[in-house]
Design a binder for these strands. Structure first.
Lengths: 341, 341
DNA sequence: ACTAAGAGCGTAATCGTTTACGGTAATCGA
DNA sequence: TCGATTACCGTAAACGATTACGCTCTTAGT
């Protein structure tokens, strides 16, 4: 491998000069020397070794990004937002999928510690992720989509930033819109009972019902990740219990429900109303008559990244929490609930 | 920061011993010393600095993975395959989106050179990506989804591995299946004329027609990435020209066409037959009556990763090209082409 | 009792780069 | 002519880890 020393030797200067020239420090070398050094570097095909550089500079200029799974379209958008900001500021991004597995998360975080990441952004798998070593090393941490306690288990204050979406509020407004449309028996498929976000979805749903003096009928609420296989059963049961609307957690669940309706000889125009708490890009094409909430996924990424940049610049600023709002998309000129078959 | 020297001092041993203990070299330190060193390391919360380690070891134990965009579901699956293999073998993966932009690609590759990546896997933006510096540095390269010349511009042999899918063959078989179903005026939306893969799709389509003595009617072929907005126009025009089947490049195009049919009062049971050359996971739920090809995306990843591993073990093996086949999924008991409205 | 072997450990070089510090020579001002 | 300033550049010390080499001391073998 050709090193800075090789270049120096061949150009008849010291390694210091080569380094200065190649890093473009101004006024430190004569024009002629600069030419010569650059020529030799090109000739020898010198490639700077950033391992050596990072060791000396004591930083890696790269972030670690940990998300549940890249297979989620929301996540891909988000990561793109982060990547764009990082790149513009001269940082690289090392991304890892945790698959919500604390083991994997721990492994990645340890990797981040060892490689002296400049910053860490993650969707924590639980409240008690061990990020204190990181913070002690001076590595800023941004928690995305899920909150993280600003006080560590041993009582120390944590300087960390948090970006959340307004899950409960979205769900509340979605439910409200179904009510305004005339629906009264609104079912809810919020996702997993164990998941923090999914639980919030249920909370918002409940709140909207209560605000309108409606009772929560637990037989209309189904906690689970509704897979394709499961959807027909669940849908049928909800219809039997006379549901006139269904609030679903995400596009895939919506898809499952729509498919099930179809196999029952129904569709969105002749069956229950549907509201999906997030919307994949293909959703409007598939079911233009459906109401959905759209999450500002890309903005999520840029927001998180900017919080990180801020803190890199000034590590002592107080912890911040940002909540991003989703927008609700109603199809134009839709009608009230249709009666069952 | 606490270094190996701090631990050594506090444990009354040399840095060499600490290193040996912490790296688990067998029989190099007495049981008692090991206990002591480990205890001190824990007490001081020592975190190994992999920058220092990498510098000394002269390797980073991480791969660089460059793909067009993570927003493509195929790509997410693929990257997961790579990540799994990498992790199992003790490598990290640094992933970057090129967005098919040679500039971005070049920047990432330079990053890979500088950080002394252990290997590079990429979907090249063009035939003349500059990978020779990499190969000279001894960094193995695997080209994914698109071929790369095994001879460099200056005539040197390149030891690189390639993983392709059978795009043309898939397209041919898809077209063939439409013909067997009785379709005669088969339209084709292969994607962009400029894209290598998309062109192959057209080639396969053409071949199938010719093998069956059918003429290629260029008015039924539309090179472009059919967006949601464009789909209605294109679909209408194809129907006007009496197309009885459409071969589309991917799920999104299929979705656009299906949506357009709907707005024309048609669907897959009363309109042209459809064949999609790839299938997103939600495709079967949405349109179970459609024929699709399914790509082994995850296997793509593992295959590429294993080629890389092989070459890391033995850099001198000859270049290899692997082609992975897609499987065609026909719905059961479908009928011939319906007549137009 | 003397040698050989081997366990256990320390010294110091090394990886490639950056940069504080100091030195030399040229230039300028008075 | 002398001192001060400045432009240019080299020496050498870091950064944190690994590891070749050699040393000491114990143990076993003869």
């Amino acid at each position: 491998m050709v090193t800075i020393a090789d270049v120096a030797r061949r150009a008849n200067v010291s390694t210091a000069t080569v380094s200065r020239v190649l890093n473009g420090l101004p006024g430190q070398a004569s024009e002629e020397t600069q030419q010569r050094v650059r020529a030799v570097a090109r000739e020898l095909q010198y490639v700077p070794n950033s391992i050596g550089r990072n060791l000396r500079r004591q930083e890696s200029r790269s972030w670690t990004l940990l998300l549940p799974t890249i297979e989620n379209p929301f996540v891909t958008q988000l990561s793109r937002g982060i990547e764009d900001v990082a790149q513009a500021s001269g940082y690289g991004v090392l991304m890892g999928n945790t698959y919500d597995d604390p083991e994997k998360e721990r492994a990645y975080l340890r990797e981040a510690e060892m490689s002296r990441a400049s910053g860490v952004l993650l969707t924590p798998t639980s409240d008690d992720v061990a990020i204190d070593t990181l913070l002690d090393l001076g590595v800023p941490v941004v928690s995305i989509l899920r909150p993280l306690p600003t006080r560590s288990p041993n009582g120390a204050d944590r300087k960390l930033d948090i970006v959340l979406n307004d899950t409960a509020e979205t769900s509340r407004r979605g439910t409200q819109s179904l009510i305004e449309r005339g629906c009264r028996r609104i079912a809810c498929l919020p996702g997993l009972y164990e998941d923090h976000t999914d639980r919030l979805r249920y909370e918002g749903y409940k709140q909207a019902l209560e605000e309108n003096g409606l009772e929560v009928d637990l037989s209309l609420v189904h906690f689970s990740s509704v897979s394709e296989d499961l959807a027909p059963d669940v849908t049928r049961r909800l219809l039997q219990r006379k549901a006139d609307a269904i609030l679903v957690a995400n596009s895939l669940t919506a898809l499952g429900v729509i498919g099930s309706l179809k196999s029952l000889g129904l569709d969105l125009d002749h069956g229950p109303s549907l509201f999906s708490c997030d919307s994949a890009s293909w959703m409007p094409i598939l079911a233009p008559q459906m109401s959905t909430a759209r999450q500002p996924a890309y903005d999520f990424g840029t927001t998180a990244a900017n919080l990180l940049l801020d803190r890199l610049e000034n590590p002592s600023i107080d912890p911040r929490t940002t909540v991003l709002e989703s927008t609700i998309h109603q199809p134009v000129g839709h009608q009230g609930p249709a009666t069952g078959p």
